[in-house]
């Protein structure tokens, strides 16, 4: 849990209902100042709904949300310090990227036009073409540029890489790191492609079916799960009394993912048993945790959680 003293966002028991469906189900967490957060989860997990409510673009059904210690709704002290360009952002008809950037310069006090110009060059964005005629990637670039150059105290990036090619994605990540280092601010990056952004994140919040599954420092999670591979009997012996996230069997062999940090003694034990230990990436861990949660919900295996993987 983050230190609530420097929390810029506090969420308590937040629920959002669309008719009978719960988009957010009793969600509580806080966001500390000047960290890069990953808001991770499958498509439709509730990420955009959550960000919309935090920015007062949407309305909660019940619960408590405060941003900079106040309710964000129609709040002139809060809103100007937030930037949230949604993944499906709409722009005025006949607007060009240039128009959108000029608008942003009117509303974001920290707007850096020179930085925006550099980003336009790097992304090779045609600034005089109408936004409705841009490709998906160019549309994403418009949102990314506004998000970066606005330098808002809290900046949300909603699946910012959609349609961007590998070079453009890397450009975005590089610019984000550099600019964040120079102008520290709170960044919330929503993503279902975890591998790509994992190393940029300081804190990870995993959401699934409207509920928070993980809320941890990224560094604390790294190394907290391992895959143990070897003869099934020996693997079972080793993983007994450990929290098993995932099991795969092939003949007399087993591959089991367990959570928990391994001590040196445990590593020695695994070595003595002739077992292989493999570290688990943040993405695999999120996938396993999400799947484990789904399984406990429905009492069955839900392979669709695999859609989180980058190689779908």
């Amino acid at each position: 849990m983050s230190d609530s003293n420097n929390a810029v966002i506090e969420v308590r028991n937040l629920t959002k209902r669309y008719r009978s469906e719960k988009a957010l189900d009793d969600v509580s967490f806080s966001i500390a100042a000047n960290k890069i957060y990953g808001l991770l989860g499958r498509n439709g997990a509730g990420k955009t709904t959550l960000m919309s409510i935090l920015t007062a673009q949407n309305f909660k059904t019940s619960g408590h949300v405060s941003v900079f210690g106040q309710s964000p709704y129609e709040n002139e002290k809060v809103l100007p310090r937030i930037c949230f360009i949604r993944e499906s952002q709409k722009y005025p008809d006949d607007f060009t990227p240039q128009h959108a950037f000029r608008s942003a310069s009117l509303f974001f006090a920290n707007w850096d036009q020179a930085f925006a110009d550099r980003l336009v060059q790097d992304f090779q964005l045609p600034v005089k073409r109408r936004i409705k005629k841009l490709s998906r990637g160019q549309l994403s670039a418009v949102g990314v540029i506004i998000g970066l150059a606005s330098r808002a105290d809290i900046t949300f990036f909603d699946e910012p890489y959609l349609g961007l090619d590998a070079v453009a994605r890397q450009l975005f990540y590089d610019h984000l790191i550099e600019d964040y280092a120079e102008f520290p601010r709170t960044v919330i990056l929503s993503s279902h492609l975890i591998d790509e952004v994992a190393n940029l994140l300081e804190h990870v919040i995993v959401i699934d079916q409207g509920r928070i599954l993980m809320d941890d420092d990224a560094e604390d999670i790294r190394g907290t799960a391992h895959t143990v591979v070897g003869p099934a009997a020996k693997v079972d012996q080793f993983v007994a009394r450990r929290e098993v996230l995932h099991t795969e069997r092939m003949g007399s062999f087993a591959s089991v993912t367990v959570s928990g940090v391994l001590t040196d003694a445990q590593r020695d034990e695994a070595m003595a048993l002739g077992l292989e230990l493999a570290p688990v990436s943040l993405q695999q861990l999120v996938v396993r945790t999400t799947m484990a949660a789904t399984e406990s919900d429905f009492g069955g295996t839900d392979r669709s959680a695999e859609t989180l993987e980058v190689s779908k």
């Binding site: 960290k35 790191i177 280092a181 190393n199 300081e202 990224a218």
Partner: peptide
């Protein structure tokens, strides 16, 4: 600097500083 480490290894600057 930590910024240089962060940019070179493409990692979070706070992590590099740590």
């Amino acid at each position: 600097s930590t910024t240089e480490f962060a940019a070179f290894y493409r990692i979070n600057p706070a992590t590099a500083a740590k």
